[in-house]
Design a protein around this nucleic acid. Structure first.
Lengths: 147, 147
DNA sequence: ATAATCTTTCCAATGATGGGAAGGTCAAGG
DNA sequence: CCTTGACCTTCCCATCATTGGAAAGATTAT
């Protein structure tokens, strides 16, 4: 199986497959004489595992651990559960921060008449010294660049 | 006011202040003979504005627009509201994706006994071909690197 | 005078992904 | 047999917001 077929079969882009190999998330596959990567069904299985974990928001670092646990048939299920629960906590932390931002913004927007007059509580809310916007959780999230 | 004092007064790191200058989010301040940047109260005001917008998850690009609107005293409040509402929609999209991930993970975790036995529905859920995990919204979020 | 604490610029790294160039390979059809 | 198109290879660069550090110069305090 070429990398293109592996990509289609797993849902992981060829770019990312090569990247995952480079950062040693997956082991280098065999190559043909022309240096083409060839993937086995087992490799596809691993890639699909990775794709699902990624879709659930796990980082590469976490996926490394999860893959190791997956391959270790004698590991305790508790070890896996710890990672999952930590990730759930992280997701909930992010959800709370986003909810706080949304709430503040909605409050500002609801007070803005949104016509062609210039006065605007949203802009004023940013500019005025009303004290710091408090998201409780610490809202410095790198959410701007999220696709 | 030196850059260090400006940083403390605004809550924006010196690194970021220089960066915002470089990408032309803010205008270059006056310099002393020794090339030290000096910030006015007005500059601090702008930096605090930026900090609040950033805390609400606005991107640099959005902040550029917001700053222009802030400075334009004759702009319509509707122009500001549009940006705010778009950002709210974006945040809600992210929140939904996170909620979907959390739900799936919690479901998997709840079925995992979490003791020292090896069988684990979480890992199995990643590995088995159960069909793709569907987050409805498309869950490819760059949430892994979020602090 | 000297040490500590600023400041400056420049360069690099992060995490996960995409884009593209330059060149090699393979399969199908003329 | 040769061309064409669709692959594959490696390598480098860009994104986004932010942090880190090094080397050198300036200011402040002891």
């Amino acid at each position: 199986m070429n990398i293109g077929e592996a990509s289609k079969a797993s849902g992981v882009s060829t770019k990312m497959i090569r990247y995952y190999e480079q950062i040693k998330l997956i082991t280098p596959p065999l190559r043909t004489e022309a240096s083409y990567r060839t993937y086995t069904d087992n490799d596809i299985h691993t890639l699909r595992f990775i794709r699902r974990a990624r879709d659930l928001g796990f980082s590469v670092e976490q996926m490394k651990t999860l893959l190791a646990l997956w391959r270790d048939r004698s590991r305790a299920s508790a070890d896996v559960k710890v990672i999952a629960l930590e990730h759930i906590a992280e997701l909930e932390r992010k959800a709370a921060a986003i909810a706080a931002m949304t709430k503040t913004l909605k409050h500002l927007a609801s007070n803005c008449h949104g016509d062609d007059r210039p006065d605007c509580p949203i802009i004023d809310g940013f500019a005025e010294t009303l004290g710091e916007i408090d998201h409780g959780i610490g809202a410095k999230f790198g959410l701007a660049g999220v696709k």
